Amino acid sequence: MNLSQQDWKAQLDQDENAVVLDVRTEDECNEGMITNAINNDIYKGQGFIYRLKELDKSKNYYVYCKAGSRSEQACAVMNQLGFENTYNLIGGFMNWNGEVFMPNEH
């Protein structure tokens, strides 16, 4: 499901079963990530699929990339794999104005 920046954040903030998934490249993630996000680069192809299969399908996944296109693809793949609740961030990280962390600082 595609959600606006405002709806995505509002729903995420209320969701105790949420996982934030960043599907950008490592280089992109080094520019900052949404707080508590885990990275799984969609460009890794089969590696991306393997890592998805390790995730708990009972969770709600809030997925984002730079602009919203790759994350929309990722949600479609996840739905095919049996994930019921995936939420794509329309406009992606480049339009995000919520909390951000730098992965290299942790």
Rank of each mutant, 00 (worst) to 15 (best):
G82V: 09
T86H: 12
G45C: 03
Y62E: 06
D41G: 09
G47F: 11
G82D: 08
R70H: 09
A76D: 12
G68W: 12
D22I: 07
W96K: 12
N60E: 05
A76P: 01
K66F: 13
H106I: 04
R24Q: 06
I34M: 08
M78C: 05
L3T: 10
G47K: 13
S4L: 03
Q14R: 15
E72V: 01
Y43A: 07
N104S: 12
I34S: 06
A10T: 11
L55S: 02
E31S: 10
R51T: 02
Q46E: 11
P103D: 12
G45S: 09
Q14K: 14
M1A: 07
D27N: 08
D13E: 14
G68M: 08
W96R: 10
N17S: 05
N39R: 15
S69N: 14
E54A: 08
P103S: 08
V77K: 11
Y43L: 07
R24W: 11
S58G: 00
K66E: 06
G68C: 03
A74V: 11
L52P: 00
L52A: 00
V63C: 02
P103T: 11
N97K: 15
N2H: 09
R24Y: 07
A67E: 05
A67S: 13
F101N: 04
G68F: 09
K9I: 04
Q73T: 14
Q46C: 01
F48E: 01
Q6C: 00
L3F: 13
F93Q: 08
V19Y: 03
C75H: 15
L52Q: 03
F101K: 10
L81Y: 11
S69A: 13
L81W: 11
D56I: 00
V20K: 06
D13L: 03
W96E: 09
A37E: 12
K9Y: 14
T86R: 12
K53G: 02
K57P: 02
I38R: 15
F93K: 09
V100P: 05
W96N: 08
Q6F: 12
L12V: 03
T35V: 09
R51I: 00
T86C: 15
N85D: 06
F48I: 01
Y87H: 14
C29Q: 13
T86K: 13
G68H: 13
N95I: 04
E28Y: 10
W96Q: 10
S58I: 00
Q14E: 08
L89R: 09
A74F: 13
R51W: 01
D41K: 14
M78W: 11
R51C: 01
N40F: 03
Q14Y: 04
M94G: 00
T25N: 06
G32Q: 13
C75D: 09
E54L: 05
Q46M: 07
G68E: 05
E84C: 03
A74H: 14
A37M: 11
F93N: 03
K53L: 06
E54C: 01
E26S: 07
F83P: 04
L3S: 05
G92H: 15
N88R: 13
A10V: 01
L81A: 01
Y61E: 00
G47N: 11
I42F: 13
R51D: 10
L21R: 09
I90A: 04
Q5W: 04
I34L: 06
A67L: 05
Q46K: 14
I49R: 12
C65R: 15
N104I: 02
D56L: 00
A67D: 02
L21T: 04
E16A: 04
Q5P: 01
W8G: 00
T35L: 09
K53F: 02
V19E: 07
L81M: 13
M102E: 14
G47D: 15
